[in-house]
């Protein structure tokens, strides 16, 4: 094991107008580790992922991937960095103008390294890995259920063989059984490919299944990190309140203040 974190965030600051979303946030994710971020709605979890992916530009702070600063990367440097990442978006974000298999093979076709026939074979293989049959390949994303869309999103994220995968709320909106199936798929794929994973979730059963390490984000800051085994006796009032889902506690929901 090396000591260089796969991803290292230092003093990350992002605001939209006057609204501060990330307030000098620090986080390290080690290679091969599965880190899970928990935190309330609107606490800046998705924004943090988008900053790492270069989809949003932070006002201040540093984002290092494999020890190299990435905040000001443009052009080819940014393009090469993108290849390290796979992302399962919160809403799926499947391209609805093309069939499922082209969605899965999109990254491969973009690189122009495979023919369309080969791409389709690879797509079908990746669909099989997330438990979808080959006849799904020809459907349009709009014809799939929410759970199937999540699985296609997962297949699309792993098809490009990334070194780092982000899962943004992979189980939200699914029934408990389907959620467990997705969790299991994530664990299997992550172990099989030996990737570094960063998962965002509200779902405690997901946390217990996927996480090596857990971090809690609150008001744009990481307020607690620790191994999965520690979450039940973290000694942190915020974490306690969150994992037990209580209305009373130090975390005041925005609605109460308004």
């Amino acid at each position: 094991m090396t000591n260089i974190p796969k991803i290292s965030l230092k003093g990350l600051h992002k605001e939209f107008g006057k609204k501060v979303v990330l307030d000098s946030l620090d986080l390290d994710v080690m290679p091969g580790e599965s880190m899970v971020i928990i935190g309330g709605s609107g606490s800046g979890k998705s924004v943090m992922l988008k900053c790492i992916l270069g989809l949003l530009h932070p006002e201040r702070g540093s984002i290092k991937v494999d020890g190299e600063e990435t905040v000001n990367l443009r052009g080819n440097g940014r393009k090469n960095l993108q290849k390290k990442f796979g992302m399962l978006f919160q809403g799926g974000a499947l391209f609805d103008s093309i069939p499922v298999w082209e969605n899965v093979a999109f990254g491969l076709l973009a690189e122009n390294k495979v023919t369309r026939t080969q791409a389709k074979e690879i797509a079908v293989e990746n669909l099989r890995r997330v438990g979808l049959s080959p006849d799904v390949a020809e459907l349009s994303p709009a014809e799939l259920s929410g759970g199937m869309q999540k699985r296609v999103g997962l297949a699309r994220a792993i098809a490009i063989k990334p070194e780092i995968i982000f899962f943004d709320e992979p189980t939200t909106g699914l029934d408990p059984i389907m959620a467990d199936v997705i969790n299991e798929l994530i664990v299997e794929r992550v172990k099989e490919m030996g990737v570094t994973a960063l998962t965002i979730t509200h779902d405690m059963s997901s946390v217990r299944k996927i996480a090596d390490k857990v971090a809690m984000i609150y008001k744009g800051n990481i307020i607690w990190t620790g191994p999965r085994s520690d979450i039940d006796h973290s000694g942190n009032a915020y974490v306690e309140q969150f994992i037990h889902g209580k209305a009373e506690g130090p975390i005041q929901m925005e609605i109460l203040k308004a």
Partner: peptide, 25 residues
Amino acid sequence: AELGTMRVTEQIDAMATLSTDPYKY
């Protein structure tokens, strides 16, 4: 309408993470 829907459903962001420049595609 098409690009706007792609924007708000994060399809344009997703494209950028798949080595495809939305301006080009």
